[in-house]
Design a protein around this nucleic acid. Structure first.
Lengths: 354, 354
DNA sequence: TGTTAGCACTCTTTAGAGGTGAGTGCTAAC
DNA sequence: GTTAGCACTCACCTCTAAAGAGTGCTAACA
């Protein structure tokens, strides 16, 4: 032990090449097996040049340096959060190499599923969880000052029309409203035109207020105005809070660290509560972000990690997609997938908005 | 034992009043506790008039009649699927009594969440799982011959427009299309009008074909026509398969019968696969339907039950909402909730469609 | 004839007691 | 600096024993 300590002290804090290789081997093995890795395994499977005893010494040093830990005295070692952090940091420093073949697959998978402007967020989460086999989240952040671009009433049948409100930032909503049955398509269009002229460029909040004050509006009856005001305020409320979609959260049950139902439940309950889920996600506008273990600040997520990539919605608006799973995660692959999906989303949203 | 058998034979197959009361007590207790019910429990908590020994005799008879079973010789009894079936059948025979106060709460909860025409199905599933704490499904069945009611292009910005297609049956979709940047709102409306006139009343399938043949259409450029054809065919494909939403599937983890991760996973994997999930659901157009255990014909669901209520979409179209959980389920409450939600949905869809 | 008290019996559940094996730390030799 | 060898630790498995819940059966009672 005293030898180990002196060696560690002597050998400096940053790892020499062999230590690093061994550490990476331990991480790699543990990521695949979820079983504490013994010195013999490393010497056999990875670092054939040295005996298990040598590896043992190195692993002992790595433990002292805080990169490995033992569940109990006579078990193999498992990587600490610090080790994952080191690993991820090297990955992040390298330029992305999303394995073009896989990236292509991602894009195909992605575009085959994400079609409706409406539910991009949900589809994306679905795609991501399918691809990674982890829980996936997609976040469309709060957009406070959405401006109305256009507003349209489309006849649906006797006395009803579909109201469509289009805003910048790609947010579109529709809702059924009752109108006087005398209205035909042309008069609805005329009203839509007047309304659009009058309301375009104003925020949803303003629209709500404007319609509430003018009870009657150049030909449109009060009922319609009220319905529109109602919908605008509802949209303002909805877009005023973050839209977040989670998918594949029960993938967690496939990982041995969650063989305990109690743990799985704790994990899932965090994902279920919007506020707690949001608190896990970092803010990113460029590159990728990874939060590991305690970095998330939620005790239930102590041994989890979240990997996130941003996507751009409008000019200054950024959304976020992410994957949540056990800290033992094939980061390289996950980072690649997220990078590709983020890019694809930016492209898609740019097209929808611009 | 010979005594029990002779008594059972003598006392006829249908249960006398006391047997029934005891059986219901066992079901009630088991539904709440998930622990095999002993004779003593019944005599203490429910049927104070008789001693445990008497109850024991009756329970022995009930076992012989197939309504109760013992996990092992010296355990209490648990209800069989036959018992649940009996219980549910009596409930179904009674006129619904959805406890007006709770029904009111359901309606409020329901209408506060279900707003968008688009995602009724998903919202409903969400509401249901929140209310019942079981997994919930909402099904919008395949609608083969959806006819286009209206079709509208709404300007969004330079070179893009939002295409909205409205069909009967309440199905509405929108999608962003590229248009010549020369088009202003009026010309888009003109095109929309021509297209609507020409296409309204035709099925999505027909629309796809029509647009594919006419490469050019009274002023609308080919690009737009192609985009519309593409979207129509996509809608036809989408509505041609059942839309199904699942929510709250991991509620299952809260029930002790799924303390085993393996079982929970099997359950969840059934809900994940659309085909297997659909196979669980009965066809109902009136009243309510309950499938218990083997009745579902899926081995993983051996000890589950599904409770379903229909809702009416259009003239002859029916959707379905349901709750899936362990066979040990407070059927009375669940039936009440589903009944209310089904009615609310019928009302909502009726409004959207008509 | 139905009901009840009593008792032997069964079977699960829990805790504890070896035994096994994987993996370590340390020492001494190379 | 590296390696072989060895004692040691501790999770995990299996086996056993004891406890406890609940039954079936018998015999007595109303």
């Amino acid at each position: 032990m005293s030898e180990g300590r002196s060696r560690a002290a002597m050998k400096s804090q940053q790892l020499d090449d062999r230590k690093l290789r061994i550490l990476l081997a331990v991480i790699d093995d543990y990521v695949h097996t979820a079983v504490p890795v013994g010195s013999r395994t490393i010497s056999r499977k990875y670092e054939t040049a040295f005996s298990s005893a040598t590896i043992r010494n190195e692993m002992s040093d790595l433990e002292e340096l805080g990169y490995l830990e033992q569940p109990h005295v006579s078990a193999g070692r498992i990587p600490t959060m610090k080790a994952y952090r080191l690993y991820v940091d090297t990955l992040l420093r390298d330029s992305r190499h999303p394995d073009e073949k896989e990236a292509q697959a991602v894009r195909e998978f992605f575009f085959s599923r994400v079609r409706q402007v409406q539910d991009v967020v949900e589809s994306t989460a679905g795609v991501l969880s399918d691809l990674t086999h982890y829980a996936a989240v997609a976040l469309m952040p709060r957009q406070l000052d959405l401006k109305v671009i256009s507003l349209q009433l489309i006849p649906m049948g006797s006395g009803t029309a579909l109201l469509v409100i289009i805003t910048d930032g790609g947010v579109i909503r529709n809702s059924v409203v009752h109108v006087s049955s005398a209205m035909d398509a042309d008069s609805l269009y005329a009203i839509s035109k007047v309304l659009t002229n009058r309301l375009a460029g104003h925020t949803l909040q303003e629209v709500t207020e404007m319609l509430a004050t003018y009870s009657r509006y150049s030909g449109a009856d009060t009922q319609v105005c009220m319905a529109i005001a109602d919908m605008a305020s509802q949209m303002a409320r909805q877009t005023g809070s973050d839209t977040i979609a989670v998918s594949g959260s029960h993938n967690i049950l496939y990982y041995p660290e969650y063989a305990d139902v109690e743990k799985a439940r704790a994990f899932l309950s965090v994902l279920e509560t919007k506020e707690r889920l949001l608190s896990l996600l970092p803010v990113v506008q460029e590159g990728m972000a990874v939060r590991i273990g305690q970095e998330m600040g939620v005790s239930e997520m102590r041994d989890c990690a979240v990997v996130c990539a941003p996507y751009r919605i409008g000019v200054g608006h950024y959304g976020l997609v992410g994957v949540i799973g056990p800290a033992r995660m094939p980061y390289s692959r996950v980072l690649g997938v997220l990078d590709t999906v983020g890019d694809a989303l930016t492209a898609l949203m740019g097209e929808a908005v611009r």
